[in-house]
Design a protein around this nucleic acid. Structure first.
Length: 209
DNA sequence: CGGAAGATCCACT
DNA sequence: GTGGATCTTCCGA
């Protein structure tokens, strides 16, 4: 099934904003304990490296925590935040320039029951409950620091061709939770499938059409 | 509904 | 010591 064929390295070796838009509709395929979990990406954000105040690579900052950001495109950058959550990024770019795409939300395709258990949900999940936000998504797919720096085209975590979006259905807006970032806070680097209920925060987005 | 607060790690000042 | 690419619960309107 070609939907589950992994994206090639070349896919990631472009500017982060381009990759962020192109990742919408692609599948996250996670193998854990012999179970396959699949989710379709519906929301992403681009982080532009040294020139982007909101980026962990702002002004070239380099620490053990963000080391993966400086590898060539095609690996995962997973970091721990707020003392409780993980966030998953795909590192992008031809050069090692600290660019990445934050995977913010996805729509469950396979293994929804397992995802609900991973999230500790009792009630029947409503749209967005399982992976409608970067922290939820990592919890549902059991993504943690052990995947940091791993390539994204092999088990146990792959990004595959999936069910790509029509560029006309992509909405964009400002990134979330980066009010401290000065003018970079206004940059239109958040991408989502227009009107998709699994998105983390619906906004009056400007359409990219 | 919306806003506030708490949970609690790690990089940086 | 401070605050963050978050989420949940609790409270009041």
């Amino acid at each position: 099934m070609s939907r589950y064929r992994p994206l090639p390295r070349k896919f990631y070796r472009r500017p982060a904003d381009q990759v962020a838009a192109d990742l919408l509709g692609r599948f996250l395929v996670r193998r854990v304990d012999g179970t396959r979990l699949v989710a379709r990406i519906v929301e992403t954000e681009a982080y532009l490296g040294a020139r982007d105040r909101a980026s962990h690579a702002w002004q070239g900052r380099r620490t053990p925590r963000n080391e993966s950001l400086y590898r060539p495109g095609g690996v995962a950058y997973v970091y721990f935040i707020y003392g409780m959550y993980y966030c998953l990024n795909a590192v992008t770019g031809e050069e090692t320039n600290g660019e990445a795409v934050l995977i913010r939300a996805a729509e469950p395709i396979e293994g929804g029951e397992q995802m609900a258990r991973n999230r500790g949900l009792e009630r029947r999940p409503r749209p967005g409950d399982l992976a409608g936000g970067p922290g939820k998504l990592c919890q549902a797919l059991r993504i943690d620091k052990s995947l940091d720096g791993q390539v994204l085209n092999v088990e146990p975590l792959r990004l595959t061709w999936g069910d790509p979006s029509d560029p006309a259905d992509i909405a964009l807006g400002e990134r979330i939770g980066i009010d401290y970032a000065g003018e970079a806070a206004d940059w239109q680097l958040r991408f989502a499938l227009d009107g998709n209920p699994h998105v983390s925060k619906p906004l009056p987005w400007r359409s990219a059409k």
